[in-house]
Design a protein around this nucleic acid. Structure first.
Lengths: 245, 245
DNA sequence: CGGCTGCTTGACCGTCATCAATAAATGTGG
DNA sequence: CCACATTTATTGATGACGGTCAAGCAGCCG
């Protein structure tokens, strides 16, 4: 992990009890004893939009949960072709106990605040935190399912279907806070630029842009600026997905 | 899971001690106590090539390890487009403790023998098998890394790169038994048909076939029949991958 | 107001999918 | 073991989808 350029306020602590991701993150099922353990070793860290949080191959010294903001996991080829292999939204876990190097590049796309644990102490504590251990397995399995869903998107879906899938994914994840169900119409605030979306969807920026225009002309979405999307008929957009999600 | 058409010899037991995947599967780190527990509840089951092992949405009653043969995990859209999201080779684990329905279709591509555990008893035993629990998390994390590597392949690689990546993947996995390193030249026995490869690589069968002939004409591989590939210069083939694998 | 960055639109082209016709491999019954 | 049928693989012709290159446009900040 990179330490430079970290804001000074970054290392402020916050009580777990008032943590916005307390009930969704790796600590979701922790009992009070476990929470006390975690609380004693955690520290916050904030990254600015665009900053690199970790690079593949780096020594893996810190594990963390996303508290706020959006980050990406990505994988690159030598010639620069890049694929985002995971979106990291609040409550997502970064890093892998039992491994000593970083497997994928991690980048902040908005300002990101992480709740961090040094890896070794965390691994040692883990044996005394069975609920955390179980939650970690559960979250990893969820990530695996999500990755496999994305493989269908990358391998088989058309550009239009990819965009529709992405919009609905963001819609779902942003209401996940409250209820799990979506209204008939939704306003979505995109956390990603066109370029980042393209990298996530296995497309180019031009194709992403064209598909947004096409969906707008077809009345399936309307745009307010470039980051705010209004979906007047969620079911109609969902019909563009093909299936699966 | 489907019970019909299962061979009668299928439920024969085999001692764990003589199991070919004893040191790589979910039981790899099990101590003798844990192994005794597993041994008491496990049963073998064999599926013929082409048989469906489980379908998405089915109640998830059985977890298992692949003992021999090859199976696929796949995800389909309503119109029939299908993406294979995981190859299941000997030692791989099938199913997910803590979930009650099957997440992906599982299909035998060769004759497959599974070492099965009923889910509920297995989950109950799991709390008394810490080494199995840890191994399961480790294997899940490995699967996640593999899935993410595949996302790069599906999203960004050319057809030629995909085929080269696939050949090397199979080469690596088939020598994983012995040492982890590859010789200068390798003979690969493909466990998959052209069609199944296409479904795995996000291509069509025609494109797969064309790329095989292209690689053959370029002297990077030679074919003996349709399933046996000889790679005279592994490094040369690896140079076709672009990166990553 | 200019300059920057990010987005959109257009013209063109390449890779891979589609459709279609062999060819090779595999299986079956006489 | 060979004729025949069926499945699987290869090869060809053609076209569409999305990539590439390039120009214009919009929002943002000094």
């Amino acid at each position: 992990m990179l330490d430079e350029d970290v804001k000074t306020q970054a290392r402020s602590h916050t009580k777990c009890a008032s943590c916005p991701v307390r009930h969704r993150a790796v600590c979701a099922r922790a009992n009070s004893d476990e929470l006390t353990l975690l609380d004693s070793v955690k520290f916050y860290k904030t990254y600015q939009a665009g900053q690199t949080i970790a690079l593949r191959g780096d020594p893996l010294e810190v594990l963390s949960s996303v508290v706020s903001g959006t980050a990406t996991l990505s994988q690159s080829m030598e010639d620069g072709r890049t694929q985002i292999v995971g979106l990291l939204l609040p409550s997502d876990f970064i890093g892998r106990p039992g491994r000593d190097t970083v497997a994928h590049d991690v980048t902040a796309v908005t300002e990101v605040t992480l709740c961090c644990f040094r890896r070794k102490p965390f691994e040692n504590l883990l044996v005394n935190m069975p609920h955390v251990q179980v939650r970690l397995l559960e979250m990893t399995l969820d990530d695996l399912d999500a990755a496999r869903d994305w493989m269908l998107l990358l391998g088989r879906k058309t550009a239009r279907e990819k965009i529709a899938s992405f919009l609905l994914l963001i819609a779902h994840r942003s209401v996940a806070n409250a209820e799990k169900t979506l209204a008939n119409e939704v306003r979505i605030e995109l956390p990603l630029s066109r370029e980042t979306m393209a990298t996530y969807l296995g497309l180019t920026i031009e194709t992403v842009s064209r598909q947004f225009t096409a969906l707008r002309k077809d009345g399936l979405i309307s745009l307010d600026g470039t980051r705010s999307v209004f979906v007047p008929d969620v079911a109609a957009l969902a019909a563009e997905v093909g299936d699966g999600e």
